[in-house]
Simulated assay, not measured.
Amino acid sequence: MSKAPIANQPLYKLWGGGNGNDYVTPYSSHFLLETPKSRAAVAARLKSQGWRAMKVKAHYKTLNEDIALCEEIRKQAGDDFTIMVDANKAGLRIPALSPTYVPWDYRRAYETAKAYEQLNVFWLEEPLPRFDLEHLSMLQKSTVVNLAGGEENQGLNEFKDYIDCDCYRVLQPEVNITGPLEVRKILVMAEASGRVVCNHLGDGRFGTILNMHLSGSATNYPWVEMANEQPIGGYESSYAIFENPPIVRADGTIKLPDGPGIGMTVRKELFTDEATPDRAIGGG
């Protein structure tokens, strides 16, 4: 027997509705390594659709290519489009997605950050190994570009270390690792130290919806990561399991779910009482 929701409110309101709005702002997150010109063309298309920001990978072999990537995006998308760059140097590496991956030393990270200053890059994500607190701190103090990271970190103590050592101005806990209640504590620590939180993706479905609620509940959670690698992984495909999927509107925002809890309903046709040969996983 199902139970009716007690408060009948969405999570972001139960958590305080900190930004006073019923919407959040996503950024289009990309994981493949494309040529600078092709990425710039994507950026221009995204902007025409209403998106305000995108994140791209910097896995090129040379510094010049890393710079050319953002130069081309800035040319095509204009000065009012926000660029985030993910270096992925904190440990996680997926060879199929980054075939030209090379580790960075401090000098490469520093030169990249200084070049990105001129291109108004909003953040540089994971430029060095995650526990190299000394060099992360040195790098953050030497650049106006925000450093970001934390997607594989666990426990409040690790995020407190980033704050105490002034390593990252953008904290990125992964909600599927840390959990939403711990993220709320990280939000408080970040706010007290003048930092922002922009969670890692989540699972691209339920976890990302949780991130939307967390963003809507806080004053220091400005961007929500949304995987959107067209045409193979557009965001619409990820949320097709829901009856009421989130839609990026013409102004680049997403309306927060207003139903109780996470406010999402999985399409009924995806459920079955009994597994049948044609519906069972692996059947056919």
Rank of each mutant, 00 (worst) to 15 (best):
Pro231Asp: 00
Pro231Met: 00
Pro231Lys: 00
Ile232Glu: 14
Gly233Tyr: 03
Gly233Ala: 11
Gly234Asn: 09
Gly234Val: 12
Gly234Thr: 10
Tyr235Glu: 03
Glu236Thr: 13
Glu236Val: 14
Glu236Ile: 14
Ser238Asn: 10
Ser238Glu: 04
Tyr239Ala: 05
Tyr239Asn: 08
Ala240Pro: 02
Ala240Cys: 13
Ala240Glu: 10
Ile241Pro: 03
Phe242Pro: 02
Phe242Ser: 03
Glu243Trp: 00
Glu243Cys: 00
Glu243Phe: 00
Glu243Met: 01
Asn244Leu: 09
Asn244Asp: 12
Asn244Arg: 02
Pro245Asp: 09
Pro246Gln: 14
Pro246Tyr: 12
Ile247Gln: 15
Ile247His: 11
Ile247Arg: 11
Val248Met: 14
Val248Trp: 12
Val248His: 11
Arg249Ala: 15
Ala250Gln: 15
Ala250Leu: 09
Asp251Thr: 09
Gly252Arg: 05
Thr253Ile: 05
Thr253Tyr: 01
Thr253Pro: 03
Thr253Leu: 04
Thr253Val: 07
Thr253Trp: 01
Thr253Lys: 14
Ile254Trp: 11
Lys255Arg: 14
Lys255Phe: 09
Lys255Glu: 15
Lys255Pro: 05
Leu256Ala: 04
Leu256Ile: 05
Pro257Ile: 04
Asp258Asn: 13
Gly259Tyr: 09
Pro260Phe: 13
Gly261Leu: 02
Gly261Val: 02
Gly261Pro: 00
Ile262Ser: 03
Ile262Arg: 04
Gly263Pro: 02
Met264Trp: 09
Met264Ile: 15
Met264Tyr: 09
Thr265Arg: 03
Thr265Leu: 06
Thr265Phe: 02
Val266Met: 10
Val266Ala: 12
